[in-house]
């Protein structure tokens, strides 16, 4: 029987959009093994837009620095599409300068998370931000 999705304590479907395969795989492993969430991945902003529209994830973990369509551009495209406009987006970045952080927060994302993340606590961070815990 398929698990219910969406609310506190229930299984969630997360889409990770990141061009770096090591980050994608460690994050996916973390969210699957620690939290038991279903994880989908995309290696580019363009691929992420398609996957998000098709799969309707409960949240998107979106890398900032990607070749081609970067995180902020991908976020704006997600918001412009009615099919994905309401999906919560959390930016994932290795940029730690405060000016970058302010710029990212001003985009209107749910939260900005930082690399490197702790694989043990990544799901807790996400759940906390989204009110899933």
């Amino acid at each position: 029987m398929e698990k219910q999705r969406g609310g506190p304590g229930l299984a969630h479907r997360i889409l990770i959009i990141d061009d770096e395969d090591d980050i994608r795989e460690v994050a996916a492993l973390s969210l699957e093994t620690v939290a038991g969430w279903e994880v989908l991945t995309a290696s580019s902003g363009a691929q992420g837009l398609t996957r998000a529209a098709e799969a309707q994830p409960d949240a998107i973990l979106l890398d900032v620095m990607m070749p081609g369509m970067d995180g902020p551009s991908t976020f704006r495209e997600l918001r412009a599409n009615p099919a994905t406009a309401r999906i919560p987006v959390l930016l994932l970045t290795a940029k730690v300068q405060s000016s970058d952080q302010r710029r990212f927060a001003d985009l209107g994302v749910e939260a900005v998370l930082f690399k490197p993340f702790d694989p043990l606590t990544l799901s807790t961070q996400i759940a906390s931000v989204l009110g899933w815990s």
Partner: peptide
């Protein structure tokens, strides 16, 4: 360096992330 900074800490090498930054 940016990519190393973003991943080394996830493998337990926090000092590596600081150096790469």
């Amino acid at each position: 360096a940016h990519k190393l900074a973003g991943v080394l800490g996830s493998f337990g090498l926090t000092k590596g992330t600081i150096l790469a930054r």
